[in-house]
């Protein structure tokens, strides 16, 4: 039963990827014209369209995976990779990196990651000081940290404005893949793919983190190393994606829930489905973002719109979100 579903999803992924390769604003004649001598189309197709579709694929599965891992670790089906202010902080870090190290991108990604981790730590520290329900205080701390860094992005943009050094604030807050190139794709793959491989092999043991601490301890999670490794890997995943695409929301939240609906809660099953669904969903959203209208529409608008619709569908179909 499961094998059939998985094969079906893989087929769907391949289909959506190939179709996406054929979608774009350049519509002069034959969609397969890149095979012929239409040099302009060839250039566009191979230099812009293909890397962009593959980037959408990659960040889609990456964000979905980060969402799943975060949900497991925080034992909350409504979390996503940007929980505890990580998204906004990574965006801030990336913006700061651009301001300071004009154009040098390894620093942008490092700053994004650094601030993402910082937000995580600050949220945890703050929540430790709040009396009362632990989960609630974590969420509250996360909201506060998120707001601070979001304001930070606004300030950076205001300061940088006269010279227009930063991508429009819209880019940071709503995400966009308009700048996708092979270079960006490969740079991102170098970070994302190893992390995905890590979680692929860890896909069964990740379940332990969903258990109560003492139970997990009795089952072999004797120290916090695995917890921190998973958490940091997830933050790294989220923040490197944010540094190239801006903050794209809803993917990490909704895709894992759908994956669980299809494959069950065991992460050894839900991880592969999450990766596939995340990729398919995001490619479709970016197809719309770059081709629906002559002007570029921020990616986050479609992920939010379609994500919210899917969320409503989820709520209606199930009594319990698990």
């Amino acid at each position: 039963m499961k094998k059939k579903k998985l094969t079906g999803l893989i087929a769907c992924l391949i289909l959506v990827t190939l179709l996406s390769f054929l979608i774009g604003r350049y519509q002069n004649g034959n969609p397969f014209g890149f095979l012929t001598s239409n040099n302009l189309y060839q250039q566009l197709f191979f230099q812009l369209r293909i890397p962009r579709v593959l980037t959408a694929l990659l960040i889609g599965s990456g964000l979905a995976l980060a969402g799943l891992v975060t949900q497991i670790i925080f034992q909350n089906p409504l979390a996503d990779g940007g929980l505890l202010g990580v998204s906004q902080a990574a965006g801030f870090g990336a913006a700061l990196g651009i301001l300071i190290f004009r154009g040098n991108s390894i620093w942008v990604q490092l700053f994004a990651f650094g601030f993402g981790v910082l937000a995580l730590i600050i949220s945890i520290l703050i929540s430790g000081k709040i009396r009362g329900n632990k989960i609630l205080s974590l969420i509250l701390a996360g909201i506060a940290v998120s707001a601070v860094f979001s304001a930070g992005i606004g300030i950076l943009k205001y300061l940088a404005d006269p010279i227009d050094q930063l991508p429009a604030i819209v880019f940071w807050l709503l995400g966009s893949l308009a700048g996708s190139t092979w270079q960006v794709l490969i740079r991102t793959m170098i970070i994302i793919v190893p992390i995905m491989i890590f979680f692929w092999f860890y896909r069964w043991r990740l379940n332990l983190h969903a258990m109560d601490k003492e139970i997990a301890f009795s089952l072999g999670l004797k120290n916090k190393i695995e917890l921190w490794a998973s958490l940091l890997a997830s933050v790294l995943l989220t923040s490197s994606i944010i540094s190239i695409s801006g903050i794209v929301g809803w993917i990490g939240l909704i895709i894992p829930n759908y994956a669980r609906m299809i494959a069950g809660s065991d992460t050894s099953n839900s991880i592969p489905v999450t990766l596939l669904l995340g990729a398919i969903f995001t490619m479709i959203c970016d197809d719309l973002a770059r081709a629906l209208l002559p002007g570029e529409i921020p990616l986050g608008i479609f992920t939010a719109f379609l994500g919210a619709l899917m969320f409503i569908g989820l709520l209606i179909n199930k009594e319990k979100i698990t």
Partner: peptide
Amino acid sequence: WSEVNMEQISNWN
């Protein structure tokens, strides 16, 4: 000012 991508620019040519 509305952002357009390279494909659109090429399409207009």
